[in-house]
Structure formats: structure tokens, C-alpha cells
Design a protein around this nucleic acid. Sequence first.
DNA 1: TGAATATATTTCGAAGACGTATATGCTCGC
DNA 2: GCGAGCATATACGTCTTCGAAATATATTCA
Lengths: 115, 115
Amino acid sequence: MAELPLGEPAFLILTALAAEPKHGYAVIEDVREISGGQVRLHAGTLYSVLDRLRTSGLIEVEREEIVQSRLRRYYRLTGAGQQRLSGEALRLRRNADAAASRLAGFTPRPGTGLA
Amino acid sequence: MAELPLGEPAFLILTALAAEPKHGYAVIEDVREISGGQVRLHAGTLYSVLDRLRTSGLIEVEREEIVQSRLRRYYRLTGAGQQRLSGEALRLRRNADAAASRLAGFTPRPGTGLA
DNA sequence: TGAATATATTTCGAAGACGTATATGCTCGC
DNA sequence: GCGAGCATATACGTCTTCGAAATATATTCA
């Protein structure tokens, strides 16, 4: 499986679950908040991503509840999920920094010698 | 067109071009450097992404050269491309920060009231 | 009462981003 | 001459995500 790619949705879903276990619908709302209202997960995306993450062992089902005859399935990050998420967050920040410094017009790359 | 999504490859390609115009193959090498050797663009990915970016007006062909009977097509960021890239970099950093703070175990969310 | 809205999950087809593989043609080193 | 590195092109497939609808219950509002 080579490490499944984390797109923005998947990344945000992991992030939402990093705070505390949540059920799917709560994840949608949390992601909307995290992203400042810019990312609205579609139900279809959510549940298929949740499935993939579970299959790859990044999250797991914590428990299931029935509240007012509605099923709530709670997911939580596994240890692997935490590692993966923090690694991914690092990567994102590096990428963002690279872009920012290049956009700033200077290319202070130590090391290899400038191109 | 609704604003084409920028995956990691597309983002890094824009970043590579932000420093200065480059031809495709040089982009591959630059991206490998930017990412600390972690992202190695495949030729197929590169040229199709390049095409998409060009179609959406984020990059444009600067010039074509023939060096040792090999064609080199140089691409450069357009104004729209710069805007898009800096916006995207911001988004990435926000996402990375959100993940980091959640992973740190505290959820100091001002505003809506804690869940 | 009845309609609309919010909660919650499931499923499925389509779009599209990305990877894999292959082809082409030149140059250089062995 | 053959393989490796440079440089672009493109067909094909896969996997993620989008988009929409189905199902079912509770609440809100007219």
C-alpha cells in the first residue's frame, strides 16, 4: 500500500480526530471550522475517506452509540495515525515555507550551490 | 473551471517555477530538492500537470530553446499563478498549524464555544 | 398537521489528479 | 555499438474526491 496519499480532505479529517474521537457528522462540522469555513466535506467523501483511513490503520472505531435512534460511530486516531498526521503536517509546512520564500523573490538556498 | 485543485505535485511545480522560469526536466530536479529528496516527480505527472496549469492560466510558456538538438520549453508563473500559489501556501500553513496544535493536545479555540 | 430543516450514515456514478509505462531522439562514456 | 542521462510526449489505469440521492428520525415553524 506504500503509504496512502493524504489529500486535503483526508488530512483535515485526521486533524479533526486528533482533538478527540468524533463521529462522522461531527467531523464534517469540525473541518468546516478548522478551515475557516472554506472546506465543506461532502458526505460521500467523508465516509469513503473514513473507510480508507480505517483500512490503513490510521484511525479506528472507538465506539458506537445510538442517540435518539440515530447511529453514531465514533472514530479515533491510532498511534500510527498520529505519527502520520504529524509527519504530514511537517511536510505541509515545509512546502508552504518553500513557496513563501520563493515568492518573496529570494532564493537563499544553502548547500548545493545556486542553480 | 471553479479553480483547479492543487495537489502536492502541482503545488511544488508552481513553487519550483516561482524562483525563475524553468523547463520541465529542471522542474523535476528542483522539486526533488525542495522536498528534501522526498518527492520525485514522474515525467508523466509533470507534463500533464504543466498542461493543466497552463490551461488554467497559472503558468505560461516563456520561451523555447534548442540545446544540443534537445528542445527545452521554459515555463514561468503568471500573475494569477503567483496569487494562487501564495494563497495556497497560506492554506497549507493554516492546515499544518491546525494539525500541530491539535496534536499538541490543547484545543484553545476562541469563538464558538468549545464542543 | 404538515413542511422544512438538522442529524447521521450509506451507496454509487462521474470527474479528475496522479502514477506507470512506453516511445522518441540526441549526446556522452565505455 | 550499447547503455545511461537528458528532454518531451502520450496512452492507460487507478485511486481520491465530488456530487447527488436514498434512508430514517427528531425538531422547528407556520
